[in-house]
Simulated scan of single mutants.
Amino acid sequence: MSFACDIPAVATVQTDDENVRVTRWDFAPGAVTGWHEHGWPYFVVMLTDSLMRVHDGEKAVDVRRKAGDTYQRPAGVRHDVMNGGDAPMAFVEIEIKRPEAVLHPAAG
């Protein structure tokens, strides 16, 4: 189901409130997040050019990403992410806990 690797990626939570969680992920070459499921929809902003290897439980797929690339995924995504390259990989993950509050904030 996940990659056979004992090098963990380093997660640094930068913001965590009732609306969003922002986490910076840093991966040494070969490092992995470990198998996990996302409870909220999320966005990713790449900080480095990278070869991201993603395992969905059935197969692994290599995806080349450039610094500044962004993508989004819905809640419920299950996977393991590995740095498939030979250089450090980093990205910021923004999980949206309450989409209605982020999209339609109360007037201040």
Results as ranks from 00 to 15, higher is better:
V81S: 10
A9T: 02
S2Y: 10
V13E: 03
E93Q: 09
M89T: 06
E18K: 12
T48H: 11
L51V: 14
A75I: 00
R24T: 10
Y42H: 13
W35V: 14
W35G: 08
F3K: 03
A101D: 10
D80K: 12
T33F: 04
G76S: 01
I94F: 03
P105R: 12
P74H: 10
G30Q: 01
D6C: 07
Q14D: 03
R78E: 09
R21N: 00
V92E: 03
V13R: 08
V44G: 03
H55D: 12
G76D: 00
P105H: 12
V61N: 10
P88W: 10
V81T: 13
L47Q: 15
H104L: 12
S50Q: 15
R98M: 06
G108K: 15
H38Q: 07
T70G: 09
H38M: 07
T12F: 05
P99G: 08
A87L: 15
Y42S: 09
D86R: 15
E95H: 03
V54P: 04
K97F: 08
M89I: 09
T70D: 02
E37H: 06
P105V: 11
D16I: 07
G84P: 05
Y71N: 04
H55R: 13
V63I: 06
F27M: 10
N19W: 05
A31I: 02
E95T: 05
R65N: 14
M1P: 11
R65H: 15
M89E: 04
E93F: 01
S50Y: 14
D6S: 14
T23F: 01
E37I: 12
V13Y: 02
D6V: 08
N19F: 09
K59N: 05
C5N: 12
P41H: 14
P99W: 06
G85S: 01
D6F: 05
V63M: 06
A31L: 03
A4T: 12
V22D: 02
Y71G: 07
V102G: 04
H79S: 07
H38F: 05
H38G: 01
E95F: 02
A101C: 06
V10G: 00
N83Q: 14
M1L: 14
P88K: 14
H104G: 03
E95D: 04
A67S: 09
V44W: 03
